[in-house]
Design a protein around this nucleic acid. Sequence first.
DNA 1: GTCTATATTCCGATAGAC
DNA 2: GTCTATCGGAATATAGAC
Lengths: 195, 195
Amino acid sequence: MARTQGSHSDITGPRVRTAALKLFAQHGFAAVSMRQIAREVGVQAGALYNYTPDKQSLLFDLMNTHMGELLASRADLPDDATPLQALETFTRFHIRFHSERPEEVFIAYMELRNLSEDNFARIEGLRRTYEDQLEVILRAGMAEGVFHVADPKLATMAVIAMLTGVNTWFREGGRLSLEEVEQIYWDMVRKSVGA
Amino acid sequence: MARTQGSHSDITGPRVRTAALKLFAQHGFAAVSMRQIAREVGVQAGALYNYTPDKQSLLFDLMNTHMGELLASRADLPDDATPLQALETFTRFHIRFHSERPEEVFIAYMELRNLSEDNFARIEGLRRTYEDQLEVILRAGMAEGVFHVADPKLATMAVIAMLTGVNTWFREGGRLSLEEVEQIYWDMVRKSVGA
DNA sequence: GTCTATATTCCGATAGAC
DNA sequence: GTCTATCGGAATATAGAC
């Protein structure tokens, strides 16, 4: 039986998210209107509300999906035998995963304040879960005497800030390949924790 | 001769900037209306236009002032005898200066995309000037053989990202004093550049 | 599922009285 | 210098036809 004329839920839904992702990253959540998103998708503004109850949910869905993918991809990595290997795996994973998703990462960092209170708490919880994985690695290395860190919580924040900073300047096809960037940052991370 | 009734240019001007700073940092430039700023100051919206030609200029003034103060404060520091001392001075200065101005720093990083093209270029130039000062220190230490860095440009970006990250979590009166944070970060910076 | 039309509210900026 | 009033437009979200 032929589809109802003008019915495209299976393709329009993802297109709404893609358009919102691009526009939020480019101009910021507050600066983007539902009409702009609709124009990017190629529908009228009213049609968007078949795919999201409101603008806020659209933002939360993007951030929640991103954080879910981050934790899932990280969980898929094989276990490491030593803290040093685990730290290298984390470093390379973080740089690679984030460099592949500059728009999602940008939104996840910049638009936290535009989340409702409940949505903010959920995203923050996921972020904390991820950071805790690095802290566990650092504490394990300290216990074995292979890392020398004054404060594992601060070292966790310092390493993550350093690594996430790659996204502010790295561009595919630039002076250095991603593999080279990974190697150079891994060298700095390793030294910074005294390994 | 008595002042015209309702005339307060000398105090209202700074109050407009303070209110905009607070509100932009809290909700984001695009999400804040001129009426909100006026309410915070205690005047009507139209009165704001005695102090700024438009909303964009208000944002630029805040960021330009901040970057100017950053460069001026940095220039006021005494010269260091060695690259290692210069790196420690830079590290401690960066953490301290930024931790004292969380709102200005937040705006300077988050609202770049809301600047007009010309204003963006001017702010970016000031930021680049500041970053170059760290790169000069790193190259001097490399030349003397006291720093061991694979790529001075990447090391510059890595160190600045690490240090600026302090602002995302540091709060006065928390577990660690600013002096302790400075010491721990200086230890990590020093090690990360192989000194 | 998408459209048009609209309710309701707010926006940045300006004009003119005082 | 600040006020009130307003222009012209755009915002989110909904209602109802198709």
